[in-house]
Each structure stands twice: as structure tokens, then as C-alpha cells.
């Protein structure tokens, strides 16, 4: 049992930050909700299939569950207080100068806003590809869809984001002038 806990702890340490990042991007930056959902995903893993599936499969299982929990959250609407998100944001580790931090935050806000404009399935597929480096086959397994749908979703997401990014750059350029 101790070894199973140890293995679970290692899995948690490894994938909890990634899962939080995935959920934050999926939810449009609601960090506290993302952390709650990530925690819930691990809890469900520990309760149900932990010990019965290989560790590699556990990762895919986590993302599948996390995505489903995020979908439920979308349906529930924004029920969390924004203040709590600000508290969480205040606890974000500070490793940069204020200027660098501002720039990072701006960039992250931009990424979140652009991702928010994508349909949920395109956003999920793109995040799993770009952040978690899953293959198309693995993404199809996580999302329980075909590989060709994954291929199409990722391409459409990239195409849409290209356009928005270019528009944003043009807008910034225009405002500077």
C-alpha cells in the first residue's frame, strides 16, 4: 500500500501542474476552479481505477476526467467568486521582475482570450497537442473521438488562432502609431 501511495504521489507531483494548466486554459483562466477540478480528477482516479490500469494510461484517464469535469463546469456557469481567483493569483510564485511579470501576464491573458474564442472540442484538442504533446492517436483516445476529427479540429483551431493573432498584432501596431 505504501508503494502504491508513493507511486500515486509521484504521479500527482508530475501531472498536477500540467492538469491545472490544461484546465486553466480550458476554463479561460479560472485558476481556483481549475485547481479544484484537477484535485477532483486525482481523487476520482484514486477511488476508481488506481492500481488497475498502467501508469501511462492513468495520465490519459486524468485528462479525460478533467475535461468532462470542465464541461460540467461550463454547464453550471460561473459560480465561483472572482475574489477567490484573485487570492489564488496572489499566491502565484513570483520569479520575475515586475516588468517581466506584467509582460508574462499580458501574454497569458492574450492566450486565454484567444483560446476562449474556440469551440470547446477544438480548444481541448489543441491544448492536449501543444501543452501535453500527446499524439493524435492519444488525443483521440482521451476525447473518445476519431483521429481524423482530432486532425481537423487542431488544424481549424490553429487557422482561427492565426487569424486572431494577426488581427491582434495589427491592432497593437495601429494603436502604437
Amino acid at each position: 500500500m505504501a508503494s502504491e501511495d508513493a507511486e500515486f504521489t509521484m504521479l500527482f507531483q508530475e501531472f498536477y501542474p500540467s492538469l491545472c494548466r490544461f484546465l486553466e486554459c480550458l476554463l479561460g483562466g479560472r485558476a481556483s476552479v481549475a485547481q479544484d477540478l484537477a484535485q477532483e480528477s486525482f481523487l476520482q482516479l484514486h477511488r476508481t481505477v488506481w492500481g488497475t490500469i498502467p501508469v501511462g494510461e492513468a495520465r490519459f484517464w486524468l485528462y479525460r476526467v478533467a475535461r468532462n469535469l470542465a464541461l460540467n463546469e461550463f454547464r453550471r456557469g460561473e459560480t465561483r467568486h472572482r475574489l477567490f481567483d484573485r487570492v489564488v493569483e496572489a499566491l502565484r510564485p513570483r520569479t520575475q521582475t515586475p516588468e517581466e511579470e506584467y509582460e508574462t501576464q499580458e501574454r497569458q491573458e492574450l492566450v486565454l482570450s484567444m483560446l476562449k474564442g474556440l469551440p470547446e472540442d477544438q480548444r481541448t484538442a489543441l491544448l492536449l497537442r501543444e501543452q501535453e504533446q500527446l499524439s493524435y492517436r492519444e488525443i483521440a483516445e482521451v476525447l473518445d473521438v476519431s483521429e481524423s476529427k482530432v486532425k481537423t479540429d487542431i488544424f481549424r483551431a490553429r487557422t482561427a488562432l492565426r487569424e486572431r493573432w494577426a488581427q491582434r498584432v495589427r491592432a497593437i501596431g495601429a494603436s502604437v502609431r
Binding site: 500527482f12 501542474p17 491545472c20 494548466r21 481549475a34 485547481q35 493569483e89 502565484r92 492574450l110 492566450v111
Partner: peptide
């Protein structure tokens, strides 16, 4: 840009979650 996104997380929060 997407992969550079860092979540709002720190050690204490992570350990408490675990």
C-alpha cells in the same frame, strides 16, 4: 505561446491538494 502558459500554482498549494 500556448505551451509557455504557466498555471497559478505553488508548492504549498500543490502539497495541500495532494
Amino acid at each position: 505561446q500556448i505551451s509557455a502558459y504557466t498555471p497559478a500554482l505553488n508548492t504549498q498549494v500543490q502539497q495541500r491538494a495532494l
